[in-house]
């Protein structure tokens, strides 16, 4: 295609190329999102319908009171995330976020291990009133309701 294409056809060709690229991008995105988007789980959902081992997901809930334990290496911590219905043990190696503490909400990003322990690559905790992980906004409200019902 070294000779200039006819003018009329050229515009058509360009439009088709652009459309093809956009449709390609759309299809690629749809396919990649199906396999790569990481879904959010509450502990009860994870217990009822666990994700495949090794698939990237997020797990959110309350850090159970008295559950935070530090391994002897000094940098690995183990704790339990709960929503009052189910408990999921979590392992995390790293520096915990500043406001990560027991009886407080947290979101763990990571994968479920074969042994049922959730291995977190990253922890998100409430940062301040203005910066809460998206999932935790509703979650804490839900939990507040739940707590109210439990104490009735």
């Amino acid at each position: 295609m070294n000779s200039p294409i006819k003018a009329k056809h050229q515009r058509l060709v360009l439009v088709l190329v652009a459309l093809a690229a956009l449709i390609g991008a759309g299809l690629l995105a749809a396919w990649a999102l199906r396999s790569q988007a990481s879904y959010f789980y509450l502990p009860a959902e994870m217990a009822a319908n666990p994700p495949e081992v090794g698939r990237a997901v997020r797990l959110g809930g309350m850090v159970e009171a008295g559950s935070i334990k530090r391994d002897t290496d000094g940098v690995t911590i183990r704790f339990v995330i709960t929503d009052g219905k189910a408990r999921v043990p979590v392992r995390f190696k790293g520096i915990v976020p500043d406001l990560f503490k027991e009886n407080s909400g947290a979101v763990a990003e990571g994968k479920r291990g074969a042994d049922g322990v959730f291995v977190a690559d990253n922890l998100l905790a409430k940062h301040d009133e203005k910066y809460v992980p998206r999932e935790m906004k509703d979650m804490t409200a839900g939990q507040a309701r739940q707590t109210v019902e439990e104490t009735k």
Binding site: L33, Q36, A37, S38, Y39, A56, E109, R134
Partner: peptide
């Protein structure tokens, strides 16, 4: 559905 999309995508 609550989903997050990150570097793997």
């Amino acid at each position: 559905a609550q989903v997050s999309v990150g570097p793997p995508y």
